[in-house]
């Protein structure tokens, strides 16, 4: 008995058995999560002349484009907030979501060589995609805040609540991401569906417009869990110049919880076969 005093309980491998130590393993492999995210961030801008600048150029162009379409062409009102700033505050959560979602979708397939050769909780892979998207978002936030101050909007106490909405957005992204990840492993069709879903998502999420000026549509828009997150980001960053819809938040959190729970369930259910079908 005193041979192996510190050895953990035996690992039992059986057909159809769900890992009892799954969550403990997930914690044990947390460093791998960091390494995978670090690798993806590090490798992304290699051999790109402009390098990290792309993390800023892309959203900048998006901001101008959305301002042009919604403000100049569609004549949407911006209230007392400069329109580009309104769009930028909406783009922050949107980029966090879309980066995590598309990253998660392709993550397992891109890491197929790992999946078929080493054991680790597969959940690490989509999770690392979320972490990568978070890092991108923080870079963009570092640009957005000085820009808001330049426009005369300074952070207020509301800014302190921003982490909650960041977390909320990450959970939405994880819930949707788990579904798309597990589905992409089995059906590569979802590689083609993902960009399409994101295009639709960009318009049903109020990135380019304000929901408080669209009272008839508010409840419908709130069914999209990201709507509340976008509103939350604006409310925190723009010092309460935009309205926050609490019924929308409740709806959003409910939808998020459902997506997260079902996403986890489906992921865990299919996870054991990943190595065979990938």
């Amino acid at each position: 008995m005193n041979d192996i005093p510190t050895s953990p309980p035996p690992i039992i491998i059986e057909a159809g058995r769900t890992e009892r130590h799954y969550w403990r393993d997930l914690w044990r492999y947390r460093e791998l999560l960091g390494f995978l995210a670090w690798r993806d961030v590090k490798v992304r801008y290699k051999q790109a002349v402009l390098g990290v600048a792309w993390a800023v150029i892309q959203p900048a162009i998006n901001t101008l484009l959305l301002t042009f379409v919604f403000n100049k062409l569609a004549k949407m009102p911006g209230g007392d907030v400069p329109y580009p700033l309104l769009v930028l505050a909406g783009l922050l959560p949107w980029q966090l979501f879309s980066g995590a979602f598309s990253g998660a979708g392709s993550s397992l397939v891109n890491n197929a060589h790992l999946i078929s050769k080493v054991y680790f909780p597969r959940l690490i892979v989509p999770l690392s995609a979320v972490v990568v998207a978070l890092i991108d978002m923080l870079v963009l936030l570092g640009i957005a805040i000085p820009y808001a101050m330049y426009e005369g909007i300074y952070p207020t106490w509301r800014f302190l609540l921003l982490p909650l909405f960041v977390l909320g957005t990450m959970l939405v992204a994880l819930g949707a991401g788990l579904w798309i990840t597990a589905l992409t492993v089995k059906y590569r069709d979802f590689r083609f569906i993902t960009p399409f879903l994101l295009q639709i998502g960009m318009f049903v999420t109020p990135v380019g417009y304000r929901t408080d000026f669209l009272p008839n549509w508010r409840d419908w828009l709130a069914l999209n869990p990201l709507t509340s997150m976008v509103e939350g980001f604006r409310w925190c960053l723009l010092g309460g110049r935009t309205d926050f819809y609490d019924r929308g938040l409740f709806l959003s959190l409910t939808v998020t919880a459902v997506m997260l729970v079902t996403g986890l369930w489906y992921f865990r259910k299919t996870e054991r076969q990943f190595a065979d079908v990938i």
């Binding site: 192996i4 050895s7 035996p10 690992i11 039992i12 491998i13 059986e14 057909a15 159809g16 058995r17 999946i115 078929s116 050769k117 080493v118 054991y119 054991r272 076969q273 190595a275 065979d276």
Partner: peptide, 13 residues
Amino acid sequence: RITEPTTGRISIQ
């Protein structure tokens, strides 16, 4: 533990 067995049982210490 990369792929799961169809039948049987393994115990590893």
